[in-house]
Nucleic acid binder design. Structure first.
Length: 425
DNA sequence: CCACATGATTATGT
DNA sequence: ACATAATCATGTGG
């Protein structure tokens, strides 16, 4: 800003200053020239003390000086000879990679991009949009609000700079045009000047962008830190997830839809479901023994649930109403599931290292289930064909749990499976 | 306070 | 794009 003022002041002054040179001293001695320069500098420094009118009058006087045309032509000539050093090379500097990076990042963070959601209302809109999932949307909206704030500041500043740049540019151009009456100035020079100004301003802009990026990064890290402060899922959620996991033990890779459903049931996000399954798979595989009890428990649980569902189905079918047998509360995975669950039970029983443990308790459940299901009209086929396929999948395929230590290595540290045979529960 | 459980992130491979 | 494995950082029960 100070620069601008100085140049502004120079505007009214420079016209007059350009002329003093015709000062007799063709100093071959450097000292004299130095002295001259000192004088000129002094004049420049003090010129602002003069009033504007005074300066204008002086300028006008100089402009009307009878020698002016002659001097002007001389200046032109000199400049013609020496001024070629403007170096036309100029090399269009390739877009600064760092600037590109900053721009990209700002764009990616939604700071520079199109303004989605109107300024202050953005936070409210974000909060309202996520609606149902009030879980993380609080932190999220906080993040959004902060981001919006940053974006607002950024845009305001950017606009200010832009405006200042334009203002300054036009000002300088006016100045140069004005000066071109007293000294030769080619359009190219003006162009160059404008280029210089723009570069200066864009470097300032870059600083703005950089600090904005910094702010976003800090905000982001804080947000991520906040997200890292995890909260354990609810008991019910883990219950549901575990049920799904152990009932699809042969292939515990829920489809996108399944994930969505699980997410809905557990009041968590799909990616949280994915995280959970990722963690679960790896941790299960890493130490199957440790999960045996859990596996038995959930296997039995689903067995019971399925048995109930199947029983209900039987009753329904006997009552001659073929409605869906899905009782829904926690079992929830419809028909294909009971099949899969059954398969996983088979596989569990088939595993040598723990078959004994699972033993009669679960087996009885399986038997019950099998019996009940066998009475159920439509399901027999589906179940009848599959077990082999499942076994194959599990043991030979090596798909997801064969890669681990062979079953013999693991010592069953667990006590008797805590499976209760209470079919009513 | 410690050890373990657990959700999330990162690095790497496919 | 997804899976895995390793790792981080916190939550939790003893």
């Amino acid at each position: 800003r100070g620069e601008k003022k100085r140049l502004l002041a120079g505007h009214s002054v420079q016209g007059g200053m350009a002329l003093p040179p015709p000062h007799g001293h063709d100093g071959t001695d450097g000292d004299g020239r130095k002295q001259d320069i000192g004088d000129i500098l002094h004049q420049i420094m003090t010129i602002t003390d003069q009033s504007l009118d005074e300066a204008q009058a002086k300028k006008h006087g100089l402009n009307c000086h009878r020698m002016k045309p002659a001097l002007f032509s001389v200046l032109c000539e000199i400049k013609e000879k020496t001024g070629l050093s403007i170096r036309g090379a100029q090399e269009e500097d390739p877009p600064d990679p760092q600037l590109m990076r900053l721009d990209n990042m700002l764009l990616a963070e939604g700071v520079a991009g199109p303004e989605k959601g109107g300024g202050s209302a953005a936070a409210a809109a974000a909060a309202a949009a996520s609606g149902g999932a009030a879980d993380n949307s609080i932190e999220h909206s906080d993040y959004r609000a902060k981001l919006t704030q940053i974006r607002q500041i950024y845009h305001t500043e950017l606009e200010k700079y832009e405006q200042a740049c334009n203002e300054f540019t036009t000002h300088v151009m006016n100045l140069l045009r004005e000066q071109s009456r007293t000294r030769p100035i080619s359009p190219k020079e003006i162009e160059r000047m404008v280029g210089i100004i723009h570069r200066k301003f864009s470097s300032i802009q870059m600083q703005l962008k950089q600090s904005t990026c910094e702010a976003v990064m800090i905000l982001r890290s804080r947000f991520l830190d906040a997200r890292r402060k995890r909260r354990n899922f609810s008991k019910q959620a883990t219950e549901i997830l575990n049920e799904y996991f152990y009932s699809h033990l042969s292939n515990p890779y829920p489809s996108e839809e399944a994930k969505e459903e699980l997410a809905k049931k557990c009041s968590i996000t799909v990616s949280q479901v994915s995280n959970w399954f990722g963690n679960k798979r790896i941790r299960y595989k890493k130490n199957i023994g440790k999960f045996q009890e859990e596996a038995n428990l959930y296997a039995a649980k689903t067995a019971v649930n399925a048995a109930h569902a199947a029983a209900a189905a039987v009753q329904n079918s006997q009552a001659n109403s073929p409605t869906t047998p899905n009782s829904g509360s926690s079992g929830s995975f419809s028909l294909p599931n009971s099949g899969d669950m059954f398969l996983s039970m088979q596989s569990l029983n088939g595993d040598s290292y723990q078959g004994a443990q699972v033993g009669a308790n679960v087996q009885s459940q399986v038997d019950t289930l099998r019996h009940v299901i066998s009475q159920t009209a439509g399901y027999n086929d589906a179940l009848g064909g599959n077990p082999m396929y499942s076994q194959h999948n599990l043991n030979a395929n090596g798909g997801w749990q064969d890669a681990t230590t062979p079953s013999s290595v693991i010592s069953p540290t667990e006590g008797p499976g805590s499976v209760h045979s209470d079919t009513s529960n």
